[in-house]
Design a binder for these strands. Structure first.
Lengths: 195, 195
DNA sequence: CTCCAATCGCAACTGACGTAGCTTTAGCTT
DNA sequence: AAGCTAAAGCTACGTCAGTTGCGATTGGAG
C-alpha cells in the first residue's frame, strides 16, 4: 500500500487496475458481492497477487477508502448557517441515494464493522470529512450566528448522525426532508448552547 | 421460527439450544467468528439440522433478534424529560459498553448490513424500541414540558443517533458525557419546535 | 548492458462451508 | 400401547475461498 521499494512500472499498474476493479465491483454488487476472485479476474491481475498485497476483501476496501479520502467534497457556502448545514446533510443523504456512489459508500460502512483495518481507515476518513464540514459552522461563528463556545465538529456529527442511523441501524428510508430536519435539530441545539 | 406443526418436546429443545449457542458464540467471537458449524457443535445439534431450520448464519441472527425483541427494557421515569432522555441515551451507550451484551448488539447491527433478512428483523426491533422509548417523550408532552406537535419518535432517534453514529460509522469512542449531550441536543431541538 | 532482487503468474493443494440421500428417533394420534 | 410421520441424526460428497511453493518477469542499481 504505502511507499514500497518499487513504486514504478508494473506494480503501479497492478495497483491501479485492482483499485479500479474494486470500485467497479463495489458499485455493481455492493459489499456482499465483492470477492477477491472477482476483483482479480476483472483487473486481469492474478488472484494470488491480490491476496499477497491486499490480504483480503477488507484490505481492498481499506485501500479504496484511503483513495476516497483524497477527494474533497463540495461544502456549501450560501451565507447562512441554516442553508449550509442543510446542504451538508443533503449531500450525505443524496450520496447514499445515488445508484453509483451509494453501494460503494454503504460497503465502506459495512466493511468497517467487520475489519479493524477498514474501521481505522473509515475513522480517518470521517475525521477528514468532519474537519472539512465544520467549516460551515466556523463561518457561522465568525458571522456571530452561533456562540463561540460551540463544538464545531459536534454540530456536524449531530446534523448527519440521524441520516446514518436511519440507513444503517434502524433501516428506515431517508428523505430529503429527514436530512433537513436533522440539520435543523443540530442547529437548534447549537443555538441553545448545548453543543 | 413460527408455529410449527410440532411445537413441543425435542424441536423446542433443539431450538432453545441453538438460540443459546448462537448468543454465546456471538458474545464471545462477535459476528465475524459466528459460523453455523460452531453453533451446531456448541449446541449439540447436528449441523444439517441447523442448516435445515435456520438456513444460514443470517437466519440464526434474525431468529436471535426476534427473541431479543421480546425482552422489554427499563425505560426511566424520573419525572423530568431531561433526566429521562439522558437515561435512555445512557442505556444505549452502556449497553454497547457491556462486555456481555456489547458484542451481541454489535453483531446484530453488522449482520443487518449484510442480510436483508436480518435488516428487516433489526428494523422491527428498533420499531419496537422506539415505541417504548417514546413513552418518556409522551409523558413530557402530557406534563406540558414539550409542545404537543412534537414527533415523539423522532426525538428518540435524534437522541440516540449520535451514539450509534460514533460507534458504527465514525468509529469514535463514546462516553457517558457524549450520551448526555446527544440527549440534551434532541431535547433542545424538540423545545425549539423543529422536531 | 548486466545482474539481482522484488514482484507477479501459475497450478496444485487444503480445509471449511453447504448439500443430498438415507436412516433413526421421538412426538402425537387413535 | 402401537403405529405413523415430522423432525433430527448421520455419511459422503461437491464447491470454492484462501494458501503454498516454485518458476517466470520486470524494474532499477551499478
Amino acid at each position: 500500500m504505502e511507499t514500497s521499494k518499487r513504486p514504478g512500472g508494473r506494480s503501479a499498474r497492478v495497483r491501479d487496475a485492482v483499485r479500479r476493479a474494486t470500485l467497479a465491483e463495489l458499485s455493481e454488487h455492493g459489499m456482499r458481492g465483492l470477492t477477491v476472485e472477482n476483483v482479480a479476474e476483472r483487473s486481469g491481475v492474478h488472484k494470488t497477487t491480490v491476496y499477497r498485497r491486499w490480504g483480503s476483501v477488507e484490505g481492498l476496501i481499506a485501500d479504496a477508502l484511503e483513495m476516497a479520502q483524497e477527494e474533497p467534497w463540495p461544502i456549501p457556502d450560501t451565507g447562512t448557517i441554516e442553508e449550509d448545514l442543510r446542504g451538508v446533510a443533503r449531500l450525505v443523504q443524496s450520496g447514499f441515494d445515488d445508484p453509483e456512489l451509494g453501494p460503494v459508500s454503504s460497503a465502506f460502512v459495512a466493511a468497517a464493522m467487520q475489519s479493524p483495518e477498514a474501521a481505522r481507515a473509515l475513522h480517518d476518513f470521517f475525521e477528514a470529512r468532519h474537519e472539512q464540514s465544520a467549516q460551515v459552522v466556523r463561518r457561522a461563528v465568525d458571522r456571530g450566528e452561533l456562540p463561540v463556545t460551540v463544538d464545531v465538529r459536534e454540530v456536524i456529527r449531530v446534523a448527519v448522525a440521524p441520516i446514518y442511523y436511519r440507513l444503517f441501524v434502524a433501516h428506515e428510508p431517508v428523505t430529503e426532508r429527514d436530512a433537513d430536519r436533522a440539520a435543523d435539530a443540530a442547529l437548534a441545539a447549537a443555538r441553545a448552547g448545548v453543543l
